[in-house]
Design a protein around this nucleic acid. Structure first.
Lengths: 337, 337
DNA sequence: TTGAAAGCGCTACCAT
DNA sequence: ATGGTAGCGCTTTCAA
């Protein structure tokens, strides 16, 4: 099915492609008569400009590349949703790639998107990725890049993140204020800025309230099995009156383990999650958690990116934003007397 | 940052672009010497072919357009994930649009993707969309199109759907076999093939087991408020011993309403959902439901589409698939004695 | 084995 | 007000 082109119209009307182009683009120096004829025929034949030709000419594709680890975390979909809300009104398109949390695939996606000549790139770097040469390359060739959620000290570019430290601090303080004194902490994936920041927020809260930091209360969650083994003895010995987990899914598992031991939430123990994933409001008791403005992160990242792309911001300028979180208190963290 | 092109290399090596093109594409009729030189320089300068130029020439973009209603339903993300798994290995890219369940936006997305010259289109039509001229147009201009989940009688193209009738039939039969006799049914959005098919599956099961179909047991769920008003009296009067809901989210709300009335699940009443969304396994009691092979739907749709795109299937040929569902029994539907 | 030229669809500059 | 021409980056005849 051949699409009709500007030259087809030109031929039919005995004018040159230039003229047709001008008429279609609303340039003034065109006689009313020819303009009308051209517009009419374009309409009749359903002419649609070919963006490929324009892109080739202008070195601009009106597309942005997006790399996310996977589609199954609600968080990323919210971010995606926020991105789309901006790109849509600004007339840009999203080409989407997943990294599956694997360095090789992430690197390949970067290459693919650059090859496609996207105008800019958005990425949420995978959890267990610790080499960033592929992102550095984007910066080096001066393609606009905005990174979301996770910070990589090495890559100097714009970031949109949330204040994990503050969020975890507030959440822990809430637990303390609600009467908990023996607060366990379940850590996230290693070597990630978010993991570190939330963990430090937890510690800061203890310090602020002059509670001792007890190393044995802190459990790594890398291996689900590991979590159970480490947590069970703490629970059996009734050493904890609260657990703060790096995210809601882990919190869900924690509650499972608590129940296995024969204790109940929230009667015996308080549980706090992080991220406000849907699971938090569907489980019972409903989970208290820290809400991240995922949609806003996406829309902000996209609008920063497009500002750079459109030249409203110097490409060299780094424009990072750190959004605030919000505590969502539900049934899993009652006030204790 | 100017990207280096085939002509740059040609100039530097005193050959013509044709020669460079040939060398890069591994054509045999090239002297070993010039090939080596070209390849070396291309490597050194980090040459990357410009797909825009190729697309313009070959009328092929290696992209597929995808339209989904929104990013927040897990089902669509699973489908998306399945699609990506195929396009990724076949070297195609996904340009993604959302419809927000709105006809205007969906139509605009179709236009956008067609304008971009995608090689083919995948779409999950929105729930409250009942006009399909925009999809008919795709068919008319002979751009490959595969529709997912929902069937529109009017649009003659390939479909990938699940067997909603069979799934609902089995689910209802399970409820009957587990000892329920007074089974309420909560309907989905009106005028949708899935709504109709699941509803008919429910009725078929009743018929098969010679239970009376009672119209007052069937409730529309369009308005959440409406659902509560209609369901509450049925529950208060203990007319139901089970409820089968069009999807898991509705089932969640149903359980809420049941508890408001002072009854409990599963003790007083069984509840069956549909779709196996994450919510089903996170709520308590965990929800029995009908699992749809969402990932497979996506991957199957994508591979059918690419087969058409690549000409392995005649474009005119309609190649529809109906995948089976699987009953997932959890705590909300106990066997009653 | 390589070059020259045309063309994919469009725009922009320079003429007229 | 319109035409001619060149060129974006690449491939593909046809010619040498």
């Amino acid at each position: 099915m051949k699409r009709i082109s500007i030259t087809d119209i030109a031929r039919a009307l005995n004018v040159t492609p230039s003229t047709v182009s001008r008429a279609l683009n609303g340039e003034p120096r065109i006689s009313e008569k020819t303009r009308k004829a051209i517009l009419a025929l374009a309409e009749e034949w359903g002419y649609r400009p070919n963006p490929l030709a324009k892109s080739l000419l202008h070195h601009k594709t009106f597309t942005v590349g997006l790399i996310i680890p996977e589609f199954t975390h609600h968080f990323f979909n919210q971010v995606l949703s926020g991105i789309e809300s901006i790109t849509n009104v600004k007339g840009y398109h999203i080409i989407i790639c997943t990294s599956d949390n694997a360095y090789d695939k992430e690197k390949k996606s970067v290459q693919t998107l650059l090859d496609m000549r996207v105008d800019g790139l958005l990425a949420a770097i995978g959890n267990n990725i610790n080499t960033f040469d592929h992102f550095q390359e984007i910066v080096d060739i001066k393609v606009p890049l905005v990174l979301v959620d996770r910070i990589c000290e090495d890559v100097e570019t714009s970031y949109v993140v949330t204040n994990d430290f503050e969020g975890a601090l507030q959440a822990t303080e809430y637990l303390i204020q609600s009467g908990c004194r023996q607060i366990g902490y379940i850590k996230g994936p290693t070597h990630i800025s978010t993991t570190f920041n939330r963990y430090m927020g937890y510690r800061e809260a203890l310090k602020k309230w002059q509670l001792p930091y007890q190393e044995e209360f802190v459990v790594e969650s890398n291996e689900p099995q590991n979590l159970r083994e480490k947590l069970t003895p703490l629970l059996k010995n009734r050493l904890l009156d609260a657990v703060f987990a790096h995210n809601d899914y882990i919190a869900y598992d924690v509650i499972d383990i608590i129940q296995e031991v024969g204790l109940t939430v929230p009667n015996d123990i308080s549980v706090m999650g992080y991220a406000n994933e849907p699971v938090a409001s569907y489980m019972s008791p409903k989970l208290s958690t820290v809400k991240q403005p995922a949609f806003e992160m996406g829309s902000l990242a996209a609008s920063i990116l497009l500002q750079i792309v459109e030249g409203h911001i110097a490409p060299s300028q780094i424009l990072s934003e750190c959004l605030s979180t919000e505590l969502v208190i539900r049934a899993s963290t009652p006030v204790r007397s």
